[in-house]
Design a protein around this nucleic acid. Structure first.
Length: 162
DNA sequence: TACTGGATTCACT
DNA sequence: GTGAATCCAGTAA
């Protein structure tokens, strides 16, 4: 089972977010299926609204790990995409205690120390050939012109949830 | 240097 | 449904 190459992440952010549903995230030797993602593309309410030291990765890389701290206590795992600013937030994995972006980072010990590294080291994305079952997708955000986020759920994730 | 608020979660009512 | 925890990057001064 070959890990996805970095070039895969060079394409449109929303396409990557959708395609990642059903893929396997490997961290160290632990593999879990991705069941919820969110695309951040040209979102004026996201880190990508300005070019800063923190957001630089979203502008200049694809296929790299982007981790940041929210609310002073939770980390969020993203993979940078596209040739412009963009990233996909990994929101949930099919595993115990991984049903939220902050929770999966806590479970897998993902912190700022992981920020900026390319895929292929500690982190890999694997495709085991299983057809992705996209349950729902929804557009997140209040303002139509500034919030451009799309969230994708696997079929199994969608049902018992929300 | 000081202030502000967030790509969340959990414990309450 | 509401609010607190907690800290750092970004911004303004």
């Amino acid at each position: 089972m070959e890990p996805l190459g970095r070039e895969f992440f060079r394409q449109d952010t929303v396409k990557v977010a959708k395609a990642l549903i059903g893929k396997l995230l490997e961290v160290d030797r632990i593999r879990m299926r991705i069941v919820e993602t969110e695309a951040y593309k040209d979102d004026q309410a996201s880190h990508a609204r300005t070019y800063t030291e923190r957001s630089r990765l979203m502008f200049e890389t694809y296929g790299h790990i982007y981790v940041y701290l929210v609310y002073g206590m939770y980390h969020c795992l993203n993979i940078t995409t596209d040739e412009g600013p963009g990233a996909v937030l990994i929101r949930a994995l099919d595993g115990e205690g991984c049903d939220g972006p902050g929770k999966l980072c806590r479970k897998l010990d993902i912190t700022l120390k992981d920020n900026g590294q390319p895929l292929g080291r500690r982190f890999r994305i694997l495709d085991d050939g299983q057809e992705p079952e996209i349950g729902t997708s929804e557009r997140i955000g209040i303002r139509k012109d500034t919030h451009l986020r799309w969230r994708f759920y696997s079929k199994e994730r969608q049902h018992p949830h929300r």
